[in-house]
Design a protein around this nucleic acid. Structure first.
Lengths: 178, 178
DNA sequence: ATCAGCATGTAAGGCGTTACATGATTCA
DNA sequence: TGAATCATGTAACGCCTTACATGCTGAT
């Protein structure tokens, strides 16, 4: 009985800070948010249309000065209310889909070297993500006193702490398997 | 261009250890595996049918002794090959869908108390999961020398290390927000 | 001129959740 | 007898990914 579409809330959250186009939203989702939530054009544009029909967002004046279409969306009061009540809901679903762990769990069917290699690949990926998040963190630390930046900062440190824990686990796991 | 259905691989992995019914598979997915991969009946039974048509699994003799139907599945050589080649693939998708982090990121639109409460709820959930995983860990440590148990053990310690890191982060985050 | 990036959208197809439908068995 | 659990499956519905279609802009 739907209306579960979490992407709606993500978009409303982004629009609560600033007016954005669908394309802008996609870029945000490719940034820091992408570490814990993903979105695609085929996801975002229909969501924006739906929410406009529901009065949660409104289109800004299309920027026709240059001839190209560019639609900026703005959140309405109803949109803000919905966003707030979602944040205030106690129920939150937090889910992992970790293929790496699945492959590890069934590691017995393959050569042990394969499992070690898979862990190494995972570790490499973690280090890459860590490097990206560290840049975000450094930038955010400079502006931590500004409104809302503490929230962005905390999500970034969540990622950093998590990846550090993963990397430590990788070392232990590799040792155990050798 | 499908055939991406990861549930197939999960089922094959489980069947690589022992013959199981669809119902058994669901129970396994509600256990330790559930921390990093979920499944439902509406997911599992169709996957089993498909894989039988593809020759990846075969039905065992239906247990008709008591009159009730109970279909046990067995993995074929083709199924084992597919499972192995998946494990040996370097590409693995690891994804988070963390509503808690989303709510935190957009915490600026709600009262700060709400955000602190949400973090607390998350922390409570982590501690509960940790308690469950600790039981698994203790049980596995007794039989660590047995075939394959090291892999189960490592996935469990992954979960434990992760939740411990989350809990530490929660303390820091709560302090920062107060 | 050409290519990367900006920008919006649709269509097909697949996947998964949820609820429903059905019936047996076990235990109190 | 009734409730919980075992056990298999289907149907509806929604959601998302991927690929496609289209065209502008800015830099080299």
């Amino acid at each position: 009985m739907g209306k579960d579409r979490k992407i709606n809330l993500v978009i409303l959250g982004l629009l609560s800070h600033e007016d954005l186009t669908g394309y802008d939203i996609k870029k945000r989702l490719d940034g820091a948010i992408g570490f814990f939530w993903k979105g695609s054009f085929g996801n975002i544009y229909p969501a924006l249309s739906d929410m406009e029909k529901q009065g949660l967002v409104i289109k800004g004046k299309a920027d026709k000065t240059t001839g190209r279409e560019k639609i900026t969306y703005h959140i309405t009061d109803d949109g803000m209310s919905l966003l707030k009540s979602w944040i205030e809901e106690e129920q939150s679903s937090n889910e992992l889909k970790y293929e790496t762990l699945l492959k590890l769990y069934f590691g017995g069917v393959a050569d042990r070297k394969i499992t070690i290699k898979n862990i190494q690949l995972f570790e490499d990926q973690c280090r890459q993500n860590l490097a990206i998040l560290s840049v975000y963190k450094d930038n955010l630390e400079k502006v931590l006193d500004e409104e809302d930046h503490i929230f962005f900062y905390l999500t970034v440190t969540f990622g950093i702490d998590t990846y550090n824990a993963y990397i430590k686990w990788c070392s232990k796991a590799k040792k155990m398997l050798k």
